[in-house]
Computed example of a mutant assay.
Amino acid sequence: MGQLWTVLAHLHSLAGPAITLIYPLYASIQAMESQTKLDDEQWLAYWILYSFFTLMEMAAESILYWIPIWYEIKLVLVAWLVLPQFRGSAFVYEKFVREKLRKHGRASNPNSSSSTKDDKASRDKIKNKFVSFVITSKKVNN
């Protein structure tokens, strides 16, 4: 019975990296090589959410340490985000992240010609500010 628990403990420690990193890495590469955009959105959304989740987990580490089944909860949540049957990361991004971005004016419709013109104008404005800052800094330093 002791050997069974040892094997289960090692499988448990391999399940996290396999679910959170190895499979998503493989699927992301496959998505980049495919012609469809749908899988690209799924995996880009996954990496955005996984990065955010990891940062929040690091910030709350002292609290999460006291939750005995935190690792299992995290694995189930990440499995839901990863598995293509659920498309959890695309769902969370669509329902929560994109809505917040739209609410704060950060997301724009790429099909709209006016938003493209506005984006180009704002990029040009930022570029001009940066160039003038760099030129001014060079004059001051010389």
Rank of each mutant, 00 (worst) to 15 (best):
G16L: 09
G16M: 07
G16Q: 07
G16N: 07
P17H: 05
A18Q: 09
A18D: 06
I19R: 02
I19Y: 01
T20Y: 05
L21G: 05
L21M: 11
I22H: 08
Y23M: 09
P24H: 05
P24E: 01
Y26A: 13
Y26P: 03
A27G: 00
A27S: 07
I29S: 03
I29L: 10
Q30H: 08
Q30N: 12
A31M: 02
E33H: 11
S34T: 07
Q35Y: 01
Q35N: 05
T36G: 08
T36K: 09
L38F: 10
D40S: 12
D40L: 14
E41Y: 10
E41M: 07
Q42A: 08
W43K: 00
W43T: 00
W43L: 02
L44Q: 07
A45N: 05
A45Q: 01
Y46S: 03
W47L: 04
W47D: 02
W47H: 07
L49G: 01
L49A: 04
Y50P: 00
Y50A: 13
S51M: 08
F52P: 00
F52L: 15
L55A: 09
L55E: 03
E57L: 06
E57R: 07
M58K: 15
A59F: 11
A60Q: 12
E61C: 08
I63F: 14
L64T: 02
Y65C: 03
Y65H: 12
W66P: 00
I67G: 04
I67S: 03
I67N: 06
P68D: 08
I69H: 13
I69E: 10
W70S: 02
E72W: 11
K74Q: 12
L75F: 08
L75E: 05
V76S: 02
V76G: 04
L77G: 12
L77D: 06
V78C: 04
A79C: 06
W80Y: 12
W80T: 04
L81R: 02
L81V: 03
L83W: 12
P84T: 10
Q85M: 06
F86Y: 12
G88V: 04
F91V: 12
Y93P: 01
Y93V: 00
Y93M: 05
E94I: 03
E94C: 04
K95P: 00
V97S: 02
V97K: 02
V97D: 01
R98G: 00
K100T: 10
K100V: 14
L101T: 04
R102G: 04
K103S: 08
R106Q: 14
R106V: 12
R106F: 15
R106C: 11
A107R: 01
A107V: 04
S108T: 07
P110H: 09
P110W: 09
P110C: 11
S112W: 08
S113A: 14
S113G: 04
S114V: 12
S114R: 12
S115Q: 14
T116W: 07
D118C: 09
D118A: 15
A121D: 07
S122G: 00
S122R: 11
S122K: 11
R123L: 13
D124T: 14
D124L: 15
K125T: 09
I126V: 14
K127N: 03
K127H: 07
K129M: 15
K129R: 14
F130P: 04
S132Q: 14
F133G: 06
V134G: 01
